[in-house]
Amino acid sequence: MGDLLSTIGTPLYYAISAIWLAWHRLFALLPISSGWAWTLAIIGLTVTIRALLIPLFVKQIKSSRNMQLIQPKVKELQKKYGHDRERLAQETMKLYKETGTNPFASCLPLILQMPIFLSLFHLLRNAANGEAKGFLTTADAKEIQNGEIFGAKISESLTNHTTTNVVVLAIILVIAMTATTFTTQRQLMSKNMPTDAMSGPYAQQQKLLLYVLPIVFAVGGIAFPIGLMLYWTTSNIWTMGQQFYVIRNNPAPGTPAAKAKEERDRAKAARHGVVAVDGPPATDVPEADRRPAQRQQPKRQSREQRKSSRPNQPKKDDNP
Rank of each mutant, 00 (worst) to 15 (best):
P201G: 15
L209V: 14
T195M: 05
E131D: 09
D196Q: 13
T180N: 00
L120G: 00
F135Q: 12
K142E: 08
L169V: 14
Y211W: 15
L188Y: 03
G130V: 07
A197L: 09
T162Y: 13
A218V: 13
A128H: 06
L136Q: 01
M189Q: 10
F182H: 01
L173R: 01
L209F: 10
A128F: 08
A152Q: 10
K142F: 13
S157W: 02
T163E: 10
F182S: 01
E148K: 14
A128C: 02
V168L: 07
L124V: 07
V212M: 05
F182G: 00
A203D: 11
T178W: 00
N126V: 03
K133C: 08
V167G: 03
I154A: 13
I149G: 03
G130P: 09
L136E: 01
K133R: 03
T138E: 15
I215A: 02
P214M: 12
E148P: 01
L124M: 13
H161R: 15
I144P: 00
T184P: 00
G200T: 08
T181V: 11
L213R: 11
P214D: 02
I154R: 00
A170H: 05
F217I: 03
Q206P: 10
A128V: 04
T162R: 15
D140L: 15
Q145E: 05
A197T: 14
L158D: 00
A127W: 01
M198S: 08
L123M: 11
T162M: 11
T163F: 14
N129E: 03
N129Q: 08
L123Q: 05
A170L: 11
S155V: 06
L210N: 14
L210T: 13
G220E: 15
